[in-house]
Design a binder for these strands. Structure first.
Length: 509
RNA sequence: GGGUCGUUAGCUCAGUCCGGUAGAGCAGCGGACUUUUAAUCCGUUGGUCGCGGGUCCGAUUCCCGCACGACCCA
């Protein structure tokens, strides 16, 4: 048994003392009528004289965050989901018993107070706690992090997010913003008559994107399953099924490295619209983003990590080829010669295989030279078909796809294309992907006969898009790391002794 | 996978360069105080110095390895 700290011992002593007085440490019968915000919004603007006429009684519950004790009186701060409010405890008003309860409370306890409002000499709105108007609702055994610096150790912040949320109000705000952003997106889609759907996260084949999946196993069915890397192929079956406009906001999983912009599970919105083109989606994307930032900031501008971003449309549109020439500084002649292009890529330090199709090499050059320079919102268009196995071919340029990616602040935020609905072409694309897989590309797409079968029933001409929700939230909350916008980012597990938990041997097939 | 940095009290941090078993603030505990708000004042408790090994009379400090985390690179 591990030694208990002095602090914990003291708390246990208090608990024993409270129990001895017949005080329930975890009661569940308190009724809460108000919030810190409902009270302060209503009475904050009033003067002390005006408040004297208010005889209404308020009941609040929340966490005790600070105590300023004066012996026979004390100020305390109560924090609920909406914020903080101060309360004043007076011995002669609370009564002997209740005041003695207060003396045994700790910062961190969940409490309930009742009383009227008044303003202190310094003008702060305060609850004047009435007789017996203080109750303990839940006893805290552990001390909270420090009141002034809060909790800054990022590892503890992520591992014990509850502490982070209690003591760092700006963290709570980020997650409130996240919820708001998702809600705004949902509303926007519903207004355009899109139907929200849910498709499988456990899939017999992980398709719809170029990435490595997590593998799992269903015991009863004796079946290998993969966590989805994208919902795409299922959503398009729904388009074939006649739903015409669908969207899904949910998790996808990619078995890849972790960085400030990558978490193994992340949230994406994918949506598909029949009888639309990727060009329609560019306009719609502009409208969506403007809708969000106007509601959030009442402006089309915001700043991210010191960079001023302006989302007022129309956004810059640039082909991959033009981007590589203009921004990447690559000569046109190099791009027209597969051999020279591969040499150029190698010069940039990119690993190029003999089997890599030219489109893949071009995109490697793009990633290396262009991506991080696209700060203001930019639609990059005309992707090579080689790297777009599910996209429709451009009517004029058959080696190019009707596809765009959206970049903001040097990061990919969205990926969209007119969908390939020709089952014969689709089979050919999958076959090409299979050849890349055989050449060692573990991310290449697999053959999916079920999906081709669905296309053979006739899928209407459609455009679809995937938008990285975590990344949007990062941008709009000025968060430097994706871990700051995901409540419980993936970290290595540790047991109570600080050792790594047992790792399962993994199979590589 | 590689590099850099970090890990010291419940929290926020000093100290380690130059080896002699650790300090502050907040929190806690005791006392004073009924309009404070990082309340104040007086007193005071609290440490496997991330883990393991090596060198040494002696290691939180030097060396090696490991773990976890952060950032950068691939």
């Amino acid at each position: 048994m591990e030694e208990e700290s002095e602090l914990l011992k003291k708390r246990r002593e208090k608990i024993d003392s409270l129990k001895a007085d017949g005080i329930d440490l975890y009661p569940n019968d308190a009724r809460v009528g108000d919030t810190t915000a409902s009270v302060s919004e209503r009475f904050g603007p009033m003067t002390a004289e005006e408040l004297e006429k208010i005889t209404e009684r308020f009941t609040l519950a929340g966490r005790l965050m600070a105590v300023r004790d004066f012996g026979k009186g004390a100020f305390i701060s109560i924090q609920d989901r909406k914020g903080r409010l101060q309360a004043f405890l007076r011995k002669n008003q609370l009564g002997e018993k209740t005041f003695s309860l207060f003396k045994r409370l700790d910062v961190g306890d969940i409490i309930w107070v009742a009383g009227r409002v008044f303003k202190t000499r310094t003008g702060e709105l305060t609850i004047d706690v009435e007789e017996n108007g203080l109750r303990l609702l839940s006893k805290s055994l552990r001390p909270l992090p420090e009141k002034w610096h809060g909790l800054t150790d990022v590892e503890i912040r992520y591992r014990q997010r509850h502490l982070d949320l209690i003591v760092n109000p700006e963290v709570r705000k980020v997650f409130q913003q996240r919820s708001r952003i998702i809600s705004l997106i949902r509303r926007f889609m519903e207004e355009r008559d899109f139907l929200e759907v849910e498709t499988p996260m456990m899939q017999p084949r992980a398709g719809g994107a170029v990435a490595r999946p997590f593998k799992t196993f269903h015991n009863a069915l004796g079946m290998n399953l993969f966590l989805r890397i994208a919902p795409e192929l299922y959503l398009k079956r729904l388009i074939t099924g006649g739903l015409e406009r669908v969207f899904e906001i949910n998790r996808s999983f990619r078995n890849e490295g972790i960085s400030t912009f990558h978490n193994p599970e992340f949230t994406m919105m994918e949506f598909y619209q029949a009888y639309a083109t990727y060009e329609d989606l560019m306009t719609m994307t502009e409208e969506l983003f403007v809708h969000i930032v106007r509601k959030l900031f009442d402006s089309t501008k915001f700043s991210y990590q010191g960079k001023e971003i302006d989302l007022s449309p129309p956004w810059r549109r640039l082909t991959v080829r033009d981007a590589v020439v203009e921004i990447g500084g690559v000569e046109t002649a190099v791009l027209d010669d597969a051999g020279r292009m591969a040499d150029h890529a190698r010069k940039l330090g990119v690993e190029v295989k003999q089997s890599d199709p030219p489109g893949k090499v071009l995109m490697a050059i793009f990633d290396e030279t262009v991506e991080q320079n696209l700060i203001q919102p930019t639609f990059v268009t005309h992707y090579p078909v080689d790297v777009s196995p599910l996209s429709r071919r451009n009517a004029e340029e058959r080696t190019l796809a009707d596809r765009f990616e959206l970049y903001i602040c040097g990061k990919e935020i969205a990926n969209a294309f007119s969908e390939l609905n020709d089952p014969v072409d689709q089979r050919g694309r999958f076959e090409m992907q299979l050849r890349e897989r055989e050449a060692g590309d573990l991310e290449a797409h697999e053959m999916d006969e079920d999906y081709i079968g669905a296309l053979e029933c006739g899928m209407p001409p459609t455009a679809g898009e995937g938008i990285g929700i975590d990344r949007i939230v990062m941008l709009l909350t000025d968060s430097a790391s994706i871990r700051d916008v995901i409540l419980f980012p993936l970290l290595r597990t540790r047991d109570d002794w600080g050792h790594l938990a047992a790792r399962c041997p993994h199979d590589n097939d």
